[in-house]
Design a binder for these strands. Structure first.
Lengths: 276, 276
DNA sequence: AGTAGTAAGATGTCCGACATCTCACAAGGG
DNA sequence: CCCTTGTGAGATGTCGGACATCTTACTACT
């Protein structure tokens, strides 16, 4: 006869006290809530160091493993920052790119990348709309500088630098929007763009065409015109989209889930002739 | 508790460092990648059951605890679904609401919520643009149904049901866009909306005004008009934004970082008179 | 005074055991 | 015959301890 089943309420020697019997909900979940509650109440503030894991386990009367799993959940969500040998800290709200846990849910191949581009249009459109209102002189100078750097890299033919400066430019766009949540969301999809970006540049050498697109975006923001800016963003990303669609078609995959170029342009611009 | 001495862990994010991982990487991280790789390669497909934790530990030659932490990370990210007593499964891509891990990170007070609303405009604008192209008859029927449910709840004065049906409607919007990444991103900010939504409804009983907004959005999609749809979305969320701004002003906080209602409308619509 | 070595503290990892939940299937009673 | 009961296997949840490794600070030696 094994221990399972209707064994009498007998406590095995050395097994400790299973506190879990009291709480119907998983202990880890409770610990997660307790930690977030300490943060929400202000008892723990961004930058603060949490007690050590064994100490937390003692405070909550649970095993260290449960504490670790709770911490890991909060770390994945970007609430906590864990540094080996030093401790666990409350993360600054969205300040650091918490991309060290590369989402990597969909690894961006073909049509999946099309989805990413569609998300980008949404996020960057909102970004430039906000930037038209909030961008400071420094922001504008920064964006112009990034455009110039990107252009220089493109003329040198340095694809690696080109890729980096391209990302830098779009990052400066998001920064000019002055919305940390928007910026954080954008950062989540950047890693999935990188591979594609580099590949496109290598294959096509078509990057020169992207420089004017960047300039159009900046000009729209300088003019404080949300419509112009959004249209420029849509045209720019739609160009990327078209490159991707071509690549997908040539690779033999059927791009049935991807949109036509005119569809995309019509769907995301307010100007009917914006596609020209 | 003054812990000011130790600066929060900082990472030199300057150089980009895409592959700084020459150092020995944590086992848990490697396991996480291995599991995602099995999913990405198609070896594990949505709905499939993973081997048991001890079996995975044996395959990877690591401890069960490391496997558990990797699984927990993937669960938090919505990639895996863990059911006690049954096993671990590859989650269907966004079919089920994986809201069991209530984010609740930043408590979303005041201006922070404004940021969330600004993100929502971007995401939902993109969603309706895509929905104008991709929405099926079923999608349209679903959206109409959700609008009706929301209206019924509003007339009954059931704020709880109203809150739920409101969320359901917006969820059906995102579903009609047929972009899983977009949908996933939207879901990340939904929990932060919930509190505010309920509070607004309780205080103001102003929800009746939101029903026509929903109807306008659906009408725009039915007409396959991205411009109309996007304008309707912008007007709808801008109305929420205005409610929030009013609440913030009354609470004494200065809404200096929030936009004026006209600014917002002008920034996100293509029709100058859309604000009327 | 400067540097190398060392100790303390924290997270990372592994192991083994028990607890509890879920499901399938067989045994029993209406 | 159907329905209830319970028994068992299999899986996740939790606990406790031990050791490994990294970070930091302090000490001791040159």
């Amino acid at each position: 006869m094994s221990r399972s089943g209707s064994a009498p309420p007998e406590r095995p020697a050395g097994a400790g006290t299973p506190y879990a019997a009291l709480a119907r909900r998983p202990v880890t979940e409770v610990i997660t809530e307790m930690i977030t509650e300490r943060i929400r109440s202000g008892e723990l503030r961004p930058g603060d160091k949490l007690p050590a894991e064994p100490e937390l386990a003692r405070q909550f009367q649970v095993g260290r493993g449960s504490v670790r799993e709770a911490i890991r959940t909060l770390h994945t969500l970007g609430v906590l920052q864990v540094v080996r040998g030093r401790g666990t800290f409350v993360a600054e709200p969205m300040s650091q790119p918490h991309s060290d846990q590369f989402v990597g849910l969909s690894s961006a191949s073909g049509p999946e990348l099309a989805e990413i581009l569609e998300v980008r249009i949404g996020l960057e459109s909102a970004a430039v709309s906000l930037a038209c209102v909030r961008a400071t002189k420094d922001d504008l100078a920064e964006m112009r500088k990034r455009v110039a750097e990107h252009e220089a890299a493109a003329e040198r033919g340095d694809v690696h630098a080109e890729c980096r400066t391209d990302e830098d430019f779009h990052d400066s766009l998001l920064r000019a929007a002055h919305n940390q949540n928007l910026h954080a969301m954008y950062r989540m999809i950047v890693p999935q763009m990188s591979d594609f970006r580099l590949e496109t540049l290598k294959l096509e050498r078509s990057s020169q065409r992207f420089v004017p697109g960047h300039r159009d975006i900046v000009n729209g923001i300088v003019a404080r015109s949300p419509q112009e800016s959004r249209n420029a963003v849509a045209r720019h990303i739609a160009a990327l989209y078209r490159e991707l669609r071509t690549a997908v078609e040539e690779s033999g995959s059927s791009p049935r889930e991807m949109l036509d170029f005119p569809e995309l342009i019509a769907g995301f611009t307010s100007d009917p002739e914006a596609g020209g």
